[in-house]
Design a protein around this nucleic acid. Structure first.
Lengths: 178, 178
DNA sequence: GCGGGGTGGTCTGTTCACCAGACCGCTTCT
DNA sequence: AGAAGCGGTCTGGTGAACAGACCACCCCGC
């Protein structure tokens, strides 16, 4: 999929993982799913991705058991499966790397362990309890580097206030108070 | 680079990271660098990647400060920089995910903390000292799932015995005699 | 000095994926 | 009923990846 010929012969599960999530846009789509985005249109608007490609990516993610397509009507919701949620450490690590090793390094988003109300460190550990919380126990909020790259779409606006991961983005944009 | 139009507008460092390491083959190249592969030919042979693409990937990795090209005459060696080594958590996490969420899940490679001679867990923590060792403190060895995907190139053979990460693959490695 | 092999690439044509944008059926709102 | 929004599909054009040929440079034995 992602890498065509020769990829499946690699003696490493990294290659298999990349066949599922290594294509263009895929990790960004999944990041948005962690943030609570569930709708086709929201993904498209937030990512500026072509419809055809988004359709293709969602199809392969569903086919590989990373997302489920919920919704009997014509308006499905895409939700992370257990396997999908297990990708959080990867996305977190890569995001951290981008934050620390590319230009203009002020964190755009900060993550805190909801139970302890404490930020997590670069390895994902809660500074209070020492555990590594899963995404369901984390709250995202904008960091000092956030304004540099402001977007105006609905998803971006909803993420301007603290948001519990995996809970749906509210379309009506009213604050979600935990 | 990796994602073309619209990518640089993303309000997240994940997008920036993907511009550097999100292209096809890039993470596999870097994984091999962690294993101690340093030469153009070894990478090409082990990955079955086209020469042109490998050239391009190495160029962009060097340009982005992930690798350095140490030129000893006309035969350069590609080494991970500090920024490059900081990608280990990402590669480890993604590899773990592939191991646990794709078919046939026996670990192909096991990692142990050299100082404690203890395997690390799924989060990368040493089971003895509790720390999260960097790649320079790890030793790779084949796991129970390794024989299913055996390759015959020189790099694959060198990795059939325990190997300290980041130390160069020995080109003259004695063949396996078991 | 000279030939041969290995290394580290570049240069082709072909195939394939991504893109913008038009189009379309279905659902929901007014 | 009419209109708007949603979730796609379907084009033509463009850029990237592929296999494979080709080539310059270095090193070795002689």
């Amino acid at each position: 999929m992602a890498l065509g010929t020769g990829y499946d012969q690699q003696g490493c599960y990294l290659a298999r993982a990349l066949e599922v999530v290594g294509e263009r846009w895929t990790l960004l789509i999944l990041r948005d799913c962690f943030y609570g985005v569930r709708r086709f249109t929201d993904l498209r608007e937030h990512l500026d991705i072509s419809r055809a490609v988004l359709t293709d990516r969602l199809d392969t993610l569903v086919a590989n058991g990373v997302l489920t397509r919920e919704g009997s009507g014509g308006h499905p919701e895409y939700l992370l499966t257990t396997a999908g949620r297990a990708l959080w450490p990867t996305i977190f690590a890569l995001s951290k790397w981008g934050e620390q090793h590319t230009t203009g390094s002020h964190p755009a988003r900060l993550f805190s362990h909801a139970a302890c109300d404490t930020d997590i460190d670069d390895a994902g550990q809660c500074r209070t309890c020492g555990r590594i919380p899963g995404p369901e126990d984390l709250v995202v909020r904008p960091g000092p580097g956030a304004n540099a790259m402001r977007r105006s779409d609905r998803v971006a606006r909803a993420l301007e206030r603290p948001h519990h991961m995996l809970t749906p983005i509210d379309p009506a944009a009213d604050p979600i108070t935990e």
